[in-house]
Amino acid sequence: MRLIVCVKAVPDPGIPVGAGPGDPAWDPASWIWDLNPPDGAALTVAASLRGTEGTVTAVSLGAHAPQALRRALAWGADRAVLLADRGGEDLDIVTTARILAAAAGRLGFDAILCGHAAIDGQGESLPAVLAGFLECPLVSPVVEAWREADVLVARTRLPHGRRALLQPRLPAMLAVEGTPPRVDATLPVHLQALTAPLDMWDVSSLGLGAVAPQVSRLDLGPPRPRPKKIFTPDSRLSAAERLRQLMTGGRVEKKTELFTGTPAQAAEHILGALRREGSIA
């Protein structure tokens, strides 16, 4: 099975990002970049689907893509393709997906995988746009996938603790959720990945013509601080009650009426509450 995994480099969520221009920590070049964790989960799924004669090709673009690709090689990718996009220009999702789709078309594939989201918040919708360009089915969010003879079966997450078993027509796009397994590759494997060759493809060689971002970033800054809620007791209450509320941090007890009855009556009482809440039909 020929598998492509689209991977992305994201900043380490633990590093400080600075308060604004002028702060040394504001410069993205000073941040630690690594593989997006859900993309690592996609690599794990791809490795399990590969079989004996299959291949897993990791593809990435962007200024920090080499870090992600080398991590992908350490975690089981057979080959890494770096799409050079004219100096790491900050591309929007549609343009990124267009480039990835062209690269996937050149590589050929039975399934294309990626993380269902990027933890830096900039990869949302990429699987859907990519599936749109490739005109193939999208299965998301995949928690597990396996092969049964010539078909691929994916287990996806649904609400209420349910899982759906889906069999997409191939070629298909799988958006995988989760994090890679905690057992990392060994040090020699990581060292080998650090020196392994990356296939460099220039985006201009993909036959896309002019590649210009359709969305531009106007500015970037820290979020507005959330207003802090300060508890103030209700002035209509007595002084003793207000003092009590202040001492308990403002926690107001719920005025629950205790239900006492037979177990069967109690069960009906609970079912009524669950029905009103919408938990049961």
């Binding site: 990002v17 918040g121 359709q214 969305v215 106007l218 800054g221 979020p223």
Partner: peptide, 22 residues
Amino acid sequence: LEGTRPVYGSRLVARVAATGES
């Protein structure tokens, strides 16, 4: 339209807009 979206794990906020007339 100008959209506001959290990025980098909601530690920063980006303001984005379409570049063309599409």
